[in-house]
């Protein structure tokens, strides 16, 4: 929230940059193009040595999907250049008038990966509590007295309910070994 955008570049570069920002949806086209190329390459380099039953082998559908991706990437690019825009999704808690808050998103991604790394060595109750508290913190909750407590209780109850009552195994970790 505190970062301010400093734009010291000369006018033409700024113009190009704002054009790119306005047409950032072209990035979606590039992704679709790349995905299409990937699917096609994978399909075409497939060596089908297994005796094939029927005329349509494992290659056909990937080739169709790959070509479809390339075609749709091109069509989308044309649409974007002609002024078409994908409408960003609204929602109850979504305020689209503000620019995207990337810091929160990156923080959430980091916390999620951290919790995923913790789940095996530390067990689910610890990793789950870290995930909940961390995510709540990233989203702006600063109640240091309440947040960790809620996180710990939620994680522990979830562990007990799933692992013991519903028969869905979750790793308890060393902490549960002690208790």
């Amino acid at each position: 929230m505190t970062t301010t955008r400093t734009d010291s570049s000369p006018a033409p570069a700024a113009g190009r940059r704002s054009w790119l920002r306005e047409h950032s949806e072209l990035g979606v086209c590039v992704m679709l193009l790349a995905l299409g190329a990937l699917v096609l390459t994978d399909a075409l380099t497939m060596d089908v040595d297994i005796t094939q039953r029927g005329p349509v082998g494992p290659k056909t559908v990937p080739i169709v999907v790959g070509i479809g991706l390339l075609v749709i990437a091109a069509l989308l690019a044309v649409d974007v250049l002609r002024g078409g825009r994908g409408e960003a999704e609204g929602g109850e808690d979504v305020d689209l008038s503000e620019p995207a808050d990337w810091r929160t998103v990156l923080l959430l991604v980091g916390i999620f990966l951290g919790a995923a790394a913790l789940i095996e060595p530390a067990g689910f109750p610890v990793a789950g509590a870290v995930l909940f508290w961390g995510a709540a913190f990233a989203l702006g909750s600063r109640r240091v007295d309440r947040d960790p407590l809620i996180a710990a209780v939620l994680s522990l109850i979830t562990y007990v309910v799933f692992d013991k009552l519903l028969g869905v195994p979750l790793p308890g970790g060393p902490l549960m070994g002690v208790l």
Binding site: D93, I119, F124, F132, A135, F137, S141, L154, L170
Partner: peptide, 20 residues
């Protein structure tokens, strides 16, 4: 429900589901 708890909870239960 405070929104940070709501969306933290969604991520939490999504993780439970995927891990399970």
């Amino acid at each position: 429900i405070p929104r940070p708890y709501l969306y933290a909870g969604i991520m939490f239960f999504a993780a439970v589901g995927a891990y399970a």
